[in-house]
Structure formats: C-alpha cells, structure tokens
C-alpha cells in the first residue's frame, strides 16, 4: 500500500492520487479524508486524479463514497483533472460519478468554490 498524501491549504484539503493506486490505498484515503475533514472543519476537498491512468469501477465507487461522506461532514468534494481517455472509459463502463463535482484544474475548482457556483451544485 502507498498512502496518498493529504495536504491542508486554508479551508481545503487536497489529495493527489498517484498514477496507479491500489484498492487498499484508495479505501485508506477515503477513511483519512473523512477523519481530516471533521478534525479541521474543512469546507472543500479537492481530489486530484490527473496522474491516474486508470479509474475503474472500484476507484469510481470509492470517489463517489468520498463525495457523499464528506458532504455529510459539511465539505464539498471536487474531482480534479480526469484524463480524457479515463473519461471516455468511465462512460463506456457506465460510471459517470453522478452527483460529484468535477473541474479540469485545481485553479478552476478553487475559483468555483470561492464563487459558490459553477459545476454541478448537487452533491450525492
């Protein structure tokens, strides 16, 4: 297992998934994000997947779970930087990360959060 680092920037937590995340590391990240959101009262979680070459049904499910758990804890999750080939494959698999906000870049995600608009406002 390789732990995904979680960095705190003001009111936000930023986690960047590595190129090839294994299942246990993904579940571990989900648990730590929930704990850290509660501990720091974070309002925003940015999940950077720009390095991920593969997002399969398991990782997709973990991402949706992270978004729902964090929403219950008062934080909004934005998935950042999905690669085009990954987006195509996800749709073909029938996985569309329903209800999860997305942004192309961290800057876009932060801008949208500051403005309190942009993207899909529903979560979960």
């Amino acid at each position: 297992m390789t732990a995904v680092p979680v960095v705190r920037i003001r009111n936000a937590l930023v986690a960047a998934m590595q190129e090839d995340i294994d299942d246990r590391s993904a579940l571990d990240l989900a648990d730590r994000l929930a704990t850290e959101v509660a501990a720091h009262g974070a309002g925003l979680v940015l999940l950077d997947v720009s390095a991920a070459q593969v997002v399969d049904s398991f990782i997709s499910r973990v991402i949706v779970d992270i978004a729902q758990v964090c929403r219950l804890l008062g934080a909004q999750v934005t998935v950042v930087g999905i690669r085009p080939a990954v987006a195509i494959t996800l749709v073909e698999l029938g996985l569309t990360l329903e209800g999860v906000r997305t942004a192309l870049t961290i800057d876009d995600a932060m801008d949208a959060a500051e403005e309190g608009l942009g993207g899909d406002v529903r979560l979960g």
Partner: peptide, 8 residues
C-alpha cells in the same frame, strides 16, 4: 484510449 480501455 485503447490502452486505457484494456488496462481498465
């Protein structure tokens, strides 16, 4: 894209 499909 084909690589991503087969690896997924």
């Amino acid at each position: 894209v084909a690589q991503t499909r087969i690896v997924t």
